[in-house]
Design a protein around this nucleic acid. Sequence first.
DNA 1: GCGCATCATGAACAGTGTTCATTCAATAAG
DNA 2: CTTATTGAATGAACACTGTTCATGATGCGC
Lengths: 254, 254
Amino acid sequence: MNTVHSWCYRRAMAKRRTSRDNSSLEQWAAQIAALDAAPSAPPSRREPLTAGRIVDAALQLVEVDGYEALTMRRVAAALQASPGALYAHVRDKAALDDLMIGELCSRITLPVPDPAQWRAQVLDVCRQMRDLYLRYPGIAHAALESTPQSLDALRIYEGLFAILLAGGAAPQCAAWAIDGAFQYISAYSLVWLRRVPQEAAAGPIVENAEVIERFMMLPADRFPNTVAHAREVTSGEGHDRFDFAVGQLFRGLT
Amino acid sequence: MNTVHSWCYRRAMAKRRTSRDNSSLEQWAAQIAALDAAPSAPPSRREPLTAGRIVDAALQLVEVDGYEALTMRRVAAALQASPGALYAHVRDKAALDDLMIGELCSRITLPVPDPAQWRAQVLDVCRQMRDLYLRYPGIAHAALESTPQSLDALRIYEGLFAILLAGGAAPQCAAWAIDGAFQYISAYSLVWLRRVPQEAAAGPIVENAEVIERFMMLPADRFPNTVAHAREVTSGEGHDRFDFAVGQLFRGLT
DNA sequence: GCGCATCATGAACAGTGTTCATTCAATAAG
DNA sequence: CTTATTGAATGAACACTGTTCATGATGCGC
């Protein structure tokens, strides 16, 4: 449903020049036709395929089943199209990955820089990235592998840069810290996925106690510090460690 | 098929029973052939398959062709074995990944903690990890996906922990910083690979000037800060950015 | 109405991880 | 010295993957 809505929006924007009502009418007719055709057999003739629709379908697939389930064939099936049809609009699966992270980057809202609270602003942008990566599990893979700087990614680079410079940071330190943060956020989002299925089984408290116990079962002669500070090693609720790491990366830049 | 095979089996058994010298002769010929084959092809036909040999072969493959070329079939071919034979010693490809990063972790040398120079010691260990990840290109993928804490990885966790505690860091901050560093190092090693093929083309100076020029071609109204500080954005020789980010993560913990 | 250019199709290709019945070699038991 | 057993290796499958391409159908401009 999500993709259908955004697709309708995009198509309406693109075709606004010719005739909005016509597109709306087509849509109306297609919906009516779908009422009959959908239960019996999926109609082969659909609305034209576009890169935008492909990206939307791919993102929806990742949101539901994770990035490792993202397959050209599955995207095509979700669009009721042939696998080869996608390659008329998207060069590669890598190109699709780039488009997906571009779409994600375009969803991030950048604040107007406020020197008084630049730390909070930077952290907020980083959290937005993290939440997007977690909403589409495993898509950080694509972010790590994709083109160094797409224009969409560069937009949020510029946004963070502006916040940091307004806060009084030196340009080189600011640029390097942003770079490091991008990489850290991707890695964090990937590692975070490994804890999710465990959370579904039981509450986090029991889970944490279990982990502490396991750490204390380690041979104390080989892992003295880990055993001694098992509580601190396993501490951190939610995304506390994320906030800590991001805070460290942007520390003392003024 | 089933009956035919079992019939063949019975027939082979019967044949062996009737003329055993024939089978012995074949074996004799095989031994003679092995005399010649052994010096030329030293390895593996008679050597029993072990998890260790599989891991070694897999690492060698990654070192030469990269992690995306790591395939169960290729590992088996390198060992002159059948693809299915690997599964008697390694449960999954994921398990093979775990064993590989375990092997890598076991190669890292940990210093005895010296409070006077704990920063240098931490940076050295992080660089060892990075260099291993870069020597086996793309294997950081396995590190990000693999089991949260294998005992080999925990060993270097403990080593870093000891260095930091000796340096006077608070246990929780130390643990969180180590965690962040692990994730950052993996992401950095993956991102670094995208620059390597460009280095082969020309010297880094020309390359850098090219990148600066490209950044300055951006629309200045949309990317004012990136354009204005293109030099700082593209600065950093070698692993300068790595050292910066690691330094930030472990900053001010005493 | 027709020609054209575009797009979707479905089959194919070369791979992938993984499984399985079958075969073999070496060993333990009689 | 046979014989039975066992554990590992095989090779052929299975269900997939990304990608290509000739074929065929579609809708638009004239």
